[in-house]
């Protein structure tokens, strides 16, 4: 198991196929560990992980926090929404302040595209992008890939439909990049106001008719529709949206019989997905996505290079040593 050659995890775009595979392999073993009684590994003992969330998040923040703690890091979560940034301190000042506290890993979410890249240039430790604007959310794409692999036995040669508000979605972009790198066929389905046609340049097939788009797909990936899209004239109403793009039994019927349903959460039941379908344990892997989230983030934290204390660096655990 070798560390990433890159210093930060800023996006899927900068990951090699090997990086992706080794993350998924290691995450698989952490998934096993997480189901055991003793969930602790000592890989990050003595290190400090700081989670900086400039945007509200429950699951991603909790997931990163748990991942760091299970690996033995001291984890601190800062909700920067309400703190100094509100007092006029800039993103960079906040980063520099935290940097001075000698953390080893910074996990950052920010509402603006590119903000995590900017911050990464100013600090010495490794930075993990936990979502920046509409740009990327790499750990979500990795956990989706792991979930797909566990369900389908592979993440290649599959047909995957990403449905809904693609325009504003970092999840869609990271998934597009990852799934394309691993040679899958990606479709995007949604109202034409929310699916930029330019994605066709990346080999994506674009549909505004959901039943057409879902024909014979292996994976149906739903995205959350933000309520404020109504006021921006992207879609006329929630009920028209659900009528056309809400996932229900009828629309799902055209997908492959073994197609699985995914959703990055939080869900709007009755807006983009029928509530009963979301809970159907035979079709929906939404809960497993959450579980794999912790495992993937443990793998990512594990694989980042340790930049401080080079000489005293912790010996790397191999997947076999874990959970013993």
């Amino acid at each position: 198991m070798t560390h990433y050659s890159m210093k930060h995890l800023l996006g899927i775009q900068s990951m090699s196929v090997d990086d992706i595979h080794s993350t998924l392999d290691l995450a698989e073993s952490y998934a096993q560990l997480n189901r055991g009684r003793d969930k602790r590994a000592s890989v990050l003992n003595g290190t400090t992980q700081v989670n900086m969330f400039f945007e509200r998040s429950t699951r991603t923040q909790a997931s990163f926090e748990l991942a760091g703690k299970r690996l033995g890091a001291d984890v601190m979560s800062l909700n920067v929404l309400a703190s100094s940034v509100g007092k006029g301190e800039t993103l960079i000042d906040t980063a520099m302040t935290l940097n001075a506290m000698q953390p080893d890993i910074l996990v950052v979410r920010h509402p603006q595209s590119g903000a995590v890249d900017l911050l990464a240039q100013k600090v010495e430790c490794s930075v993990v992008n936990a979502g920046d604007g509409r740009h990327e959310h790499p750990t979500q794409a990795l956990l989706d890939a792991l979930t797909i692999r566990r369900s389908k036995g592979r993440v290649e040669g599959l047909t995957i439909a990403i449905c809904g508000d693609i325009l504003h979605s970092r999840v869609a972009r990271s998934n597009l990049l990852l799934l394309s790198k691993l040679q899958n066929r990606v479709r995007m389905i949604g109202p034409s106001t929310l699916v930029p046609p330019i994605f066709a340049e990346f080999g994506v097939e674009i549909f505004d008719d959901m039943k057409e788009g879902l024909q014979n797909v292996d994976i149906v990936m739903m995205l959350r529709l933000q309520e404020e899209r109504m006021s921006g004239s992207f879609v006329p109403s929630l009920r028209e949206y659900f009528h056309l793009y809400g996932l229900d039994e009828e629309k799902l019927a055209v997908a492959r019989p073994d197609a699985i349903i995914m959703h990055p959460g939080p869900m709007n039941r009755g807006v983009e997905i029928d509530g009963l379908l979301a809970d159907d344990i035979n079709r929906s892997v939404i809960q497993e996505q959450v579980e794999m989230g912790v495992a993937v983030r443990m793998a990512v934290l594990h694989l980042l290079p340790r930049l401080r204390h080079q000489e005293g660096a912790m010996p790397l655990a191999t997947p076999d040593q874990l959970g013993q």
Partner: peptide, 11 residues
């Protein structure tokens, strides 16, 4: 400016 790059960058 609208382009494939701007779309990927999420701008």
């Amino acid at each position: 400016t609208s382009s494939a790059l701007a779309s990927l960058m999420g701008l």
